[in-house]
Design a binder for these strands. Sequence first.
DNA 1: AAGACGAAAGTGGTTGA
DNA 2: TCAACAACTTTCGTCTT
Length: 310
Amino acid sequence: MTYVKKCPECGSINLIFDKDRGEVICRSCGLVIEERVVDFDQEHREFDSEQGEKRRRAGAPLSWTKFDRGLGTDVGQKQDIYKLSGKERNKFFRLRKWQYRISTAIERNLKLALAELKRVSSYLKLPKSVEEEAARIYTLAVQRGLVRGRSMESVVAGALYAACRRHEVPRTLDELSEASGIDKKEIGRTYRFITRELGIRILPSNPVDYLARFASALKLNAETQSRAVEILEQAQNSELTSGRGPTGIAAASLYVAALLNNEKRTQREVADVAGVTEVTIRNRYKELLKKLNLMEKVKKSKRKLLAEVV
DNA sequence: AAGACGAAAGTGGTTGA
DNA sequence: TCAACAACTTTCGTCTT
């Protein structure tokens, strides 16, 4: 189990992993390359299946979407209890009670919250990796006491939004709002709050990430979509994109691309799927025409349309 | 009649003193 | 903490197709 393949000092590939000390050492020059390495290999050999069974210790993979990360034990499962009697049984009930008490507010909160998280995430058809990330963020937020004074649901939504952004599968605040039933502004607020408090850095989302989804919602063909990507790239090169809402830009690019490819959609239609207003599309669209010298192209394609009709 | 366009006023958030 | 500010929205009247 080695991450390092070559010794940075002498370039030798003759490395040895000292399990007891947790170090990777170069055999040629003696340099300690990595300290405190955790050995993930099995620490035993199996000579037959019986030994394997006995020695293998494994469980379900760790998951942040379980409130105790998939670990955990319940005291006293039904069948066990009836095998016992009297004193022993009382002992079990006492233990159960204690466990219930010990499972703090944090854990109970997590249980509920993660259920909610799964609900929203499956509603939005988010990939597993995003769900895991969101669960991690939420868990951190709970541990830091950031949920206090905020509704659990809004923090869940905020965590999901952040996770989406980090994984470059952005959903709009509107979509999140619809899925979770939380006000858009509220989600935005908690999102900003928890990312700031947890020091999560998030790149401004790229309009391109929205194109595919919007295009399919508008039933535009692939050609139009790639046209929109081109337009978007030109726009970014002309610095038309900074400081603007990414959804508005994506929407305007699609609108123009649709015009050019004779697949016209109304501003209203595009505006609706992108969750912006027609006015915003118009503004972006105007800028696109002016700066990218697409004016003639659009007019030309309009003339062509007319000519075809006549 | 529907869509596109543009002006004007309002909203929520950021920034900088 | 407050005011200035940019982006975006809402609303509404007008023009075009």
